[in-house]
Amino acid sequence: SAVVMEEGSPGEVPVLVEPPGLEDVEAALGMDRRTDAYSRSSSVSSQEEKSLHAEELVGRGIPIERVVSSEGGRPSVDLSFQPSQPLSKSSSSPELQTLQDILGDPGDKADVGRLSPEVKARSQSGTLDGESAAWSASGEDSRGQPEGPLPSSSPRSPSGLRPRGYTISDSAPSRRGKRVERDALKSRATASNAEKVPGINPSFVFLQLYHSPFFGDESNKPILLPNESQSFERSVQLLDQIPSYDTHKIAVLYVGEGQSNSELAILSNEHGSYRYTEFLTGLGRLIELKDCQPDKVYLGGLDVCGEDGQFTYCWHDDIMQAVFHIATLMPTKDVDKHRCDKKRHLGNDFVSIVYNDSGEDFKLGTIKGQFNFVHVIVTPLDYECNLVSLQCRKDMEGLVDTSVAKIVSDRNLPFVARQMALHANMASQVHHSRSNPTDIYPSKWIARLRHIKRLRQRICEEAAYSNPSLPLVHPPSHSKAPAQTPAEPTPGYEVGQRKRLISSVEDFTEFV
């Protein structure tokens, strides 16, 4: 048969007729292969192709491409040299491709048809291009793949890379869960390890502090508590009631339409708007009261037996805890006409967050109470924005700035309102402590230090009264110190430094 060459192609190359033996071998191979691939376009007849790359030819070592076609129900084999250009295909004639002069020997084609199974398996396991790669995943090629499931790999992101949580363990979102698992493993320790309690022994800490320079003076030496005195035992138990972190309780009120001037209507609300609910979820963490331990979680007086509701929101960081007394989460009882059960919590909070959804101005004093010092007013606006402002009593104007209003988005509203309420509550605590000038409020841990110092002074006084020969370590507060001759004046800087060093040991009130 003659071949018409394309323009620009090399000279004529004689194409030899395939021997009958080659056709029989390739026909047997075509019957084993699956003929249901995917359909081509209507211009080209339905056909199945599979590209198999052999590394070497037997005796020649030339890479070839073998295409199996099922045109007219008769499979045909096409061998081509890759750099050459194939002729145009037609549905009426068999596929013809040019070969190099080196394939002119018909014996070479017979060798190609009689490829060993080793070469076929190696060509099938190679990388296939384009559409033949999808075909190689079918059941027909499963014989050339190794048996057994593939090893499982770690989760992959859409980009093909490992997620960040699997790369950096410290930033993994499941870090707290692993800590819980470690605690569970520790709890399952053997009885021999049960006595080993991690941490620092208080006796060891005391020993280090006792021999430090801070205890060089007799006034700073630790003293032993009497065991037989019940009054001192009660004082030590009272110390446990003062937490070592700051605590805040903040009221949250929802004002519906037409309720801006009605205290009873505001306290009777059992739910609010959708934006109000989203605002609550951002204030803190939802907790169930019956599962809380009052000595570990500050509840601000809420009952854990269901008297004040089942849930509330709280927030904490390293040095403070805040609980929100939310009116809509507290039960509304029919027998309580004046809502006294709610007001006994909300009316005693220094700061209230008022979500004013009424469309009218909310005035300070609508919720009557002796300790309502500051109101954080949240007014929802259009386009997911809110107006946040402050209202306070006249005696609080020096501590709280009420002249600045803020426009905040719904997303950042819980954070801004919480921070403003916490700052206002700190100012309210300082303002409330002014009624007792001898006990200015600095912080909870300073209050613990003052309680310890008062307890020490009482013990020293009782020891001096029981044994008059012992001198008083600290003179009583009601006694007057003996007159001392004025010492020589020293520079102001040295006096300030000495006073600062003494105050650092005794108390921190002056620095606050």
Rank of each mutant, 00 (worst) to 15 (best):
D317S: 03
V404S: 13
T438E: 14
F311T: 05
E278Q: 10
H431F: 12
V378F: 00
L286E: 06
Q429N: 08
V416E: 03
R456E: 15
E360M: 09
L302P: 12
L289S: 15
N386L: 01
N269T: 03
S428C: 15
P437Y: 06
G347M: 15
L267F: 08
L224D: 14
G369E: 06
S260H: 11
G347S: 15
I250C: 02
K221Y: 15
D382G: 04
E228F: 07
T312K: 05
I250F: 05
Q484K: 10
A424Q: 02
S244Y: 15
P294M: 13
T379I: 04
L238M: 13
I223W: 08
Y274W: 15
L364F: 15
G282Q: 04
E397M: 12
I223N: 05
M420P: 00
G284M: 05
S389E: 15
F324A: 02
L280C: 09
E360L: 06
C314H: 15
D295A: 07
R418E: 02
G300Y: 07
I326H: 05
S352D: 02
V473W: 11
E384Y: 05
T332F: 08
K499A: 14
V495C: 14
S219I: 11
Q321T: 13
Q259F: 02
N436R: 07
G359N: 04
L472G: 15
C460W: 14
L224Q: 15
Q370Y: 13
L264C: 10
D395K: 04
E278H: 06
C292V: 10
L413Y: 00
L470T: 15
S477W: 09
R498A: 13
I319M: 15
F508G: 15
F279L: 02
V236K: 13
Q310E: 11
N261K: 10
L472F: 12
A265V: 02
I367V: 13
L225G: 09
L239Y: 07
R434D: 07
S409G: 05
H375T: 12
V335T: 14
L381K: 03
S235W: 15
H423Q: 05
I502H: 09
L299T: 10
K368G: 14
G369F: 07
V378Y: 01
A322I: 15
H316M: 10
H432K: 05
N356L: 00
E488P: 10
D357M: 01
P491G: 12
D334F: 12
C460L: 11
M330K: 05
Q419Y: 02
P486T: 13
H375N: 15
V335Q: 11
N372L: 07
V416M: 08
S469N: 15
A417Q: 01
G347L: 15
H248Y: 12
L283R: 00
L346I: 15
P468E: 13
V351W: 00
A251W: 03
Q370P: 15
I250V: 04
Y254E: 01
S389I: 04
K249C: 14
